[in-house]
Structures are given as structure tokens and as C-alpha cells.
């Protein structure tokens, strides 16, 4: 049996192993396409209340807290002051807090922002596109994304000031 035959065998076995690993990995990990903790945060492209289009990559290099909310969701409304307070505390240390409103119109969100005195950037997702790519179910859902763009933690449910503070501290340390 010649050397060329041996290398053909090795190439074929290697190809089978690679295809096998790929196939098994795609069904085990990437099945529903919903991002999980430890994975890269998906991109978004949304209109902000400032009239500008904002994308995920625009905040690269900053630790991000991405909060999905709506005025029709009482716990979302309740946690707004905590988010605002933490934004004021952490913004100088390169932490950005982004609120993504789900499914509401400009007027509603504008009134809400004016009434509650929220200053951190608010984006609108009227067609629920970001909701789908982030796989958001019940609200509020908050994604803690590291400066390198990895999802550090996903929080489903209302946040209070101290847990939010701890979570952001952990996020900043995670890098």
C-alpha cells in the first residue's frame, strides 16, 4: 500500500470528521438562533429618540446594558429610575445604558421620556425586529454586554438599584 493511498485515507477521514463536527455542532448549539449568555450579542439598527439611527457596533468598546421595555409593562416603568441612576453613576466609566422600546409609537415614548426624566439613550423597535434577533420573551429583559460584545448576563424581570449596580460592576470587571 503506497504512501499516496494512506494520505488519501487520512484526507477522507479528516473531511468526514470535520463535516461531522460541524453538523453535530449546528444542531446542538445553533438550533433556535436565540443568543445565549457567553455568545456574541446580535446587531441592531434602530431609530433613536434623538432622530439618529443607532447600531450595536456603534457602542463597541463600551460595556452595554440593553434594556427592552414598554410603557404598557408596569415593571419596566418601575425600573426606569434605577436604570437612570446607574447610567448617571457608571457613564464616566465607559458603561452605556440603552433602552429599547418595544412596539410603541414616537409620541407615546416621547411623552414617557419627558414625564420620567430618562436621559439615557432610548431607541424604538416598532416592528419588533430587535426583539426577534435578541429572542426577547417576557419584559422587561435586560442584556448585559461586555466591551468586547459578549453577552455576560441576561436578566428577565424587574431590576432593583442594588442588583443592577452589582451586575454592572461584574460586567465592567468581566471586560
Amino acid at each position: 500500500m503506497g504512501k499516496s493511498k494512506k494520505s488519501v485515507q487520512v484526507v477522507i477521514l479528516l473531511a468526514i470528521v470535520l463535516i461531522g463536527i460541524y453538523a453535530v455542532a449546528t444542531v446542538v448549539f445553533g438550533s433556535d438562533g436565540v443568543p445565549k449568555e457567553g455568545e456574541r450579542a446580535p446587531d441592531f439598527q434602530l431609530l433613536g429618540m434623538d432622530g439618529e439611527v443607532h447600531t450595536m457596533s456603534q457602542y463597541d468598546g463600551k460595556a452595554r446594558v440593553i434594556n427592552f421595555w414598554g410603557t404598557y409593562c408596569p415593571p419596566c416603568v418601575r425600573e426606569m429610575p434605577a436604570l437612570q441612576a446607574q447610567w448617571e453613576k457608571w457613564r464616566s466609566q465607559g458603561v452605556e445604558i440603552i433602552g429599547i422600546n418595544v412596539g410603541e409609537n414616537n409620541m407615546t415614548v416621547e411623552n414617557f421620556v419627558a414625564k420620567t426624566g430618562v436621559e439615557f439613550p432610548i431607541l424604538r423597535d416598532p416592528k419588533r425586529e430587535a426583539v426577534k434577533t435578541f429572542g426577547v420573551g417576557p419584559m422587561p429583559t435586560t442584556f448585559f454586554v461586555t466591551a468586547s460584545g459578549k453577552i455576560n448576563h441576561i436578566r428577565i424581570g424587574e431590576l432593583d438599584l442594588s442588583t443592577l449596580d452589582k451586575q454592572i460592576e461584574q460586567l465592567v470587571n468581566a471586560k
Binding site: L13, I16, I19, G20, A23, V24, V27, V28, S31
Partner: peptide, 14 residues
């Protein structure tokens, strides 16, 4: 879409 089923298919392919 379970790992073992896909693995079986790959083994049949091999």
C-alpha cells in the same frame, strides 16, 4: 435534530 441522530447520519455517510 438531536446530536446522536445527526451523528448516525454522518456515520452512515462515512
Amino acid at each position: 435534530t438531536s446530536w446522536w441522530f445527526v451523528l448516525l447520519l454522518i456515520m452512515i455517510g462515512a
